[in-house]
Write a protein that binds this DNA or RNA. Structure first.
Lengths: 169, 169
DNA sequence: AGTGAAACACGACTAGA
DNA sequence: TCTAGTCGTGTTTCACT
């Protein structure tokens, strides 16, 4: 056959599996509640249970489903504080930020971290039990790093919404 | 001493259930991966399977476990953009912000929203397929609201970390 | 806490598009 | 050839003692 070097498969790196309406319907259910039985999902999306199982498996293996987790109430676990931290660095070069990024990844109190455009370079979401603990965390993260120019903290007064759900129109 | 009008019961409103080390160990597992079988959890925390089951149920019912969900890869689902939005309002009074809050809650593209201290009043995390769609979203959220003074958008260049995990030291 | 019964998930197989 | 459906088995979970 005629294809001797590469496939015509286009869009992205890890082989695009093409999600159809069934997959999306399944994902919509699972990202809301992943405890619902496959049989029930099957009835909801009009498919047989094993078919649903196969699709879920595929979605897991292909990485569309990144994790299946329980979401806990931080304040009920002694961590009532959520802090938003804008970090400014002197030099955004990967080699100069490697240490910072490593510490951020290693710090469990950091829930989220994005490199962003605009004034600040990074935005973190941090949970803490007390302000004193938050100071310890920032000391660990930014303390001895002379590439960190400054960081600005906002305290979350109220959480209106907190999730990772993706719209699946 | 001398405070004779309230009970010594401290932390919060909905009856503090006191989580022991077993509960925390179970939660630590579930917030990492809630597909592990109860039997395996039982072995890991040195408890019987029915005991684990009972504890999980309690944690669910009491709201410590707020949700059990699949986390999806937004970029694999056609939403490669994450935006951070700082919203400034004229008046923070609940009555003046009620509409805004309602629209935020109703908008699936808004993953997270916190009321915060500092310069801005709200910080949102929004996902979008394209910048054009993001503009539509902001139009819906802020468009006709004369209490919204301004909003400042940062585009997420890279996601180093994204989760809702709570440290359970 | 341990045992039982029911439900569920998972694998091999068959059939159809 | 790939994908859905049916059946059978093992495991998990839930209710009961």
């Amino acid at each position: 056959m005629s294809r001797n070097f590469r496939s015509p498969m286009p869009p992205d790196s890890t082989t695009t599996p093409v999600l159809d309406a069934f997959d999306r319907a399944i994902l919509a259910i699972l990202q809301r509640d992943n405890t619902v039985a496959q049989r029930e999902i099957a009835r909801a999306v009009h498919l047989s249970a094993p078919a649903v199982q196969r699709r879920i498996r595929r979605l897991r293996d292909s990485g569309v489903i990144r994790a299946e987790v329980a979401v806990l109430d931080a304040s009920r676990l002694g961590r009532p504080l959520t802090l938003m931290v804008e970090v400014h660095v002197h030099d955004e070069h990967p080699l100069r930020t490697a240490g910072l990024r490593e510490r951020i990844l290693a710090e469990p109190a950091v829930q989220q971290c994005h490199a962003i455009t605009g004034e600040a370079d990074y935005l973190l979401v941090v949970t803490a039990a007390t302000m004193a603990e938050y100071q310890d965390i920032t000391a660990r993260l930014f303390g001895g790093d002379d590439n960190v120019r400054r960081f600005r903290t906002s305290v979350a007064l109220e959480c209106l919404k907190a999730g990772l759900g993706v719209p699946l129109a």
